[in-house]
Structures are given as C-alpha cells and as structure tokens.
C-alpha cells in the first residue's frame, strides 16, 4: 500500500548533440510509503545516460514531498552535476517551494516559474 505518485520521463530536443535533455514530471505526493520506489526511476536514468544529462523536473502536479525525497533530490543533483549535467526545477507549487527553501535546496538547484524558462536555462548555461 502506497500513496499515489507518478514519475514520467519525456525526451526533448537538445541544442547540442552531446547533451541529453529530459523533462521529468512528478505527480501526487512523494512520501515515506512510495519515495524509495519512485526514486529508482531517476537512478536508472542517471545510470543509462552517464554523461551530460540535463533534467528539468516539472513539479506542477507535485502536491507534497517529504524530507527523504529532498535527500534524494540532493543526491541526484550531485551525481548528475559531477558528470557534466544539470538539474533544474520548474512550475513548483508554493508549499513545495517553501519546503525547498527551508532546507536550503534552492541555493543549490535553480527553480523557474515555467518549463520554457527552465529549457532556456538548460540550453544557455551562462545566462
């Protein structure tokens, strides 16, 4: 028995041939009952694309995340970043942004109001 949540991964066109960009959409509530299972999908993706993986996390339909899911987010960021990639977050609800801020994660991972702004930041790293 687990709280409903989904993780969907979508390929998007990249501005550079050696760069992989994907949108990862989270829905529902990430909590103690489901987060270990859902996190595995991201670890599998990181393993499949070991270099220059760029991920846009779409949080528009993410209703809740607990401290353990924030721990996973930090771990994914470290793994992706050390292999030339990046993770950004888009369309976060106010309560989720509040929790990301209180644990200090917004100092590490950039957040954007829209997917388009997140895509622009991924394809123009210096901006």
């Amino acid at each position: 028995m687990a709280t409903p949540a989904t993780v969907t991964i979508e390929d998007i066109e990249s501005s550079s041939p050696d760069m992989t960009v994907k949108i990862v959409k989270f829905t529902g509530q990430l909590d103690e009952s489901n987060v270990d299972e859902k996190a595995q999908a991201i670890y599998d993706l990181i393993e499949k694309v070991p270099r220059n993986l760029n991920l846009i996390f779409d949080f528009s339909e993410l209703e809740y995340m607990n401290s353990k899911s924030i721990g996973y987010l930090t771990d994914w960021y470290g793994k992706v970043y050390e292999n030339g990639g990046k993770i950004v977050i888009a369309q976060t609800r106010p309560n989720i942004l509040d929790i990301l801020q209180v644990v200090g994660l917004t100092q590490l991972i950039k957040t954007f109001p829209t997917i388009d702004e997140a895509k622009f930041a991924i394809s123009h790293p210096a901006s």
Binding site: N66, S67, K68, I70, G71, T74, D75, V102
Partner: peptide
C-alpha cells in the same frame, strides 16, 4: 551539511518551523 538521504526532517524542517 547533511550528505545522507535521510536526516533533514527534524533539524531542517521541524526545528525551523
């Protein structure tokens, strides 16, 4: 700094709020 997956709940969320 907390490097583990766990361990943020009480010190970073409960204590802060």
């Amino acid at each position: 700094v907390i490097h583990e997956i766990r361990g943020r709940g009480l010190p970073k969320i409960v204590k802060e709020w």
